[in-house]
Design a protein around this nucleic acid. Sequence first.
DNA 1: GCAAGGTC
Length: 717
Amino acid sequence: MVTLIIAEKPNVARKIAYALAEGKPVRKTIGKVGYYEFTRDGERIIVAPAVGHLFSLAPKVKTYGYPIFDIEWVPVYVAEKGKGYAKDYIKALATLARRADEFVVACDYDTEGEVIGYTALKYACGVDPSRAKRMKFSALTKKDLLKAWYNLEPTINFGMADAGIARHVLDWYWGVNLSRALTSAIKRASGKWQVLSTGRVQGPTLKFLVDREKEIQNFKPTPYWVIKMLLEKNGEQYTAAYEKERILDEDEAKRIVEEARKGPAFVEKVEVKQQKRNPPVPFDLGTLQREAYSAFGYSPKKTLEIAQKLYERGLQSYPRTSSQKLPKNLNFRSILQNLAKLPEYKPFAHELLGKERLKPVEGKKDDPAHPAIYPTGELPKPGDLTKDEQNIYDLVVRRFLALFMEPAVREIMKVVIDSNSHRFILGGARTVKEGWLKVYGKYVKFDEVILPAFKEGEPVNVIQIKREKKKTKPPARYSPAAVIKRMEDLGIGTKATRAQILETLYSRGYIEGKRKIKVTPLGMRVVEALERNVPDIVSVELTKAFEERMEEIMAGKADREGVIEESKNQLIKILQVFKEKELDIGKMLMETTGTGATTSKTAARKAGAVKELSEEEEKAVKKAVDGGARRKEHLVIGKCPKCGGDLVVRYNRKTGKRFVGCSNWPECNVTYPLLQRGEIIPTGKTCCNGAPVVKIREKGREYEICVDMNCRDWRKR
DNA sequence: GCAAGGTC
């Protein structure tokens, strides 16, 4: 007797084989596809992989019209471009099925996994899916896999399979029909062929981008005033802010300034608090994509591609996960021992290996199929990784190391100054214990504003009290990383598809801008047209409704075909109305708001995935990057001798190396090099030409050094 | 040609 076990992907097939085999499984191949043979308890077992979905929905008749509902399952390589690799996998399963008497599905235990198993059995193996048993596991450890093998479910979960199939059909019906309707409308109005699209996830994603665009367009800045007190202590100047942050009336601001100027000013209260900051949680894909965007400016899609490559090389675990928890039985010590072989991680790994107990922090999110992302302990060879791969690898390794480290401790200081019964607040903050920031501080910065000691009741030497006029700012545009986050929060798309769906919006010409996403006039019109005629498709409610129907199918409270039929009837009505108004809708889609035509193919390409940035965009990007860096709150080590701004520790975006730069960059271009090792502690002292002196603490050694390399006393120090 | 979902 031969049993064929079907896994969701090659890597899992290997793990199952190694877990179930008595001794070592034999790896064989059919075409390019590897599969495994072995015995257990005298039974012959074959484990072979799918590669995700091997079958996809496609129309039975090739037409361009709509509505269209007559669809069938076909091999993915027939329905989609670039899926040729799937052919070998289908062929391998078909061949192996002929040798098997029993079938077991061992795909991920969720609706998509059930559909992958179901269609593989039915269309690749040519077997009735009701003949198959089910392995059910939530971790790929030997223990879990053996338990699943000895406790096989008698059948696959047909409730889950039916719910999954309904999801595929409904998404196809709504997405393809409405995309054809939009494309047809613009064709009729313009005579030109331009692909437009929408769907259950594209619609609401574009909608929230449009909402933000409108908020920005309609934004009316209102003036307000802030009041600042410039004061002096021990020869240094500090700025305190009036306790009411914004004053909306200019006369009131004037009055406060006049009254406060009369003084006398004294310290009313000093508060010092210590704050514990725990290490960040392990990476799930979304968090990694956000961090890589903020650290390196990588798009979510790029980060996923790099992470996939690192996974394929065995350097890190599976990237498409929503878990923020590490496997309980992972051998942390052996991973750390391996990482210690890389000089840049050696000190941190050694420090951790000296601990008796290694307990990583963990986050709330979980994933039944995969743990959080972690480095496997396999090491890249020198020169093996591209710069981009090195960056993501470094981020993953440092995050992993940080999980086991002590919390950082921050000291927050608040000095309340009274001047003629008006209160001003002077805030300070510094890191008093680095903890996990030692290894991860490269990617997270906290504000360092060091204040001298103030005593309650002491007089304050006020230099100036003044008001400044400001204006409220419109809400910020979404970045790609922020879009992914918003999609996660709304519960639309999956960790594996969100980045790709965002790219689709670019390629349709709906949105533009690499870092700050702007909706094009075409994008605005598409949402408008859909909102008027098919409000469901731009609302997250459609996803919610689908999910409810799927729950009902799984629970046996609704029938798959009934749910599909119901959605189809609803769509028929909508599409009929759409078709009647097609020409008008097409004309509306072509209207632009005076910023140039967007309906031609070239314009759509221009508005699409932006490869080259205009000068203006380049500036905006620089500003965003700089703004981002500033928000990361760099360590201040002294004053700039040229412009009086703050000299802060910065990190080169490309090389990650640290240096000292002026906070008034790009207006002021003062920079100094820095040693790349050791902790930097500001001393408040200055040296030649006013350059600051810093203290470097490294491996218990401490010394002071002037940051100016031309310093005469450089060697001496 | 169009969706969204797996995975290389």
